[in-house]
Simulated assay, not measured.
Amino acid sequence: MRLTRTVDPAELPVSLDEAKQYCRIEHDDENSLIESLIAAAVDYLDGPSGILGRAIIAQQWLLELDAWPNRLALPIEPVSSVTVRYIDELGAETDVPESQLVLTDVPSARTVLEWIDGFQVPLLSDKRYPVKITITSGFAAAANVPEGIKAAIKMMVGHWYDNRETVVLGMSVAELPMAVNALLARYRVML
Rank of each mutant, 00 (worst) to 15 (best):
1 M>V: 10
4 T>S: 14
6 T>K: 13
7 V>Q: 13
9 P>M: 05
13 P>D: 00
18 E>W: 00
18 E>P: 01
20 K>G: 01
20 K>V: 04
21 Q>S: 14
21 Q>M: 10
22 Y>V: 00
25 I>E: 09
28 D>I: 00
34 I>V: 15
36 S>H: 10
36 S>L: 03
38 I>G: 08
39 A>F: 08
41 A>V: 06
45 L>D: 01
46 D>W: 02
47 G>A: 06
48 P>Q: 01
49 S>M: 11
50 G>C: 07
52 L>W: 02
53 G>R: 04
53 G>I: 01
56 I>M: 01
59 Q>T: 08
59 Q>S: 15
61 W>V: 04
62 L>F: 10
63 L>E: 13
64 E>S: 15
64 E>H: 07
66 D>A: 10
71 R>A: 10
71 R>F: 12
71 R>T: 15
71 R>I: 13
76 I>H: 08
76 I>W: 04
77 E>Y: 06
77 E>Q: 15
82 V>A: 11
83 T>K: 11
85 R>P: 03
88 D>R: 14
89 E>F: 14
90 L>A: 15
97 P>E: 15
101 L>R: 11
103 L>G: 13
104 T>S: 15
105 D>Y: 04
107 P>W: 09
109 A>L: 11
112 V>R: 09
118 G>A: 14
119 F>E: 05
119 F>R: 02
119 F>H: 11
121 V>A: 12
122 P>G: 12
123 L>I: 04
127 K>V: 11
128 R>L: 15
129 Y>G: 00
134 T>S: 15
140 A>W: 05
143 A>R: 10
144 N>T: 02
147 E>D: 10
148 G>Y: 00
148 G>C: 01
148 G>F: 01
149 I>F: 03
149 I>D: 01
149 I>T: 01
150 K>G: 02
150 K>P: 03
159 H>Q: 13
160 W>R: 14
161 Y>G: 07
162 D>F: 06
162 D>C: 08
164 R>D: 09
164 R>T: 08
164 R>I: 04
165 E>K: 15
169 L>R: 14
170 G>P: 03
173 V>E: 09
173 V>A: 14
174 A>N: 08
175 E>K: 09
175 E>H: 07
179 A>S: 12
179 A>R: 12
182 A>Y: 05
184 L>P: 01
184 L>N: 04
185 A>F: 04
186 R>P: 01
187 Y>C: 01
187 Y>V: 00
188 R>P: 00
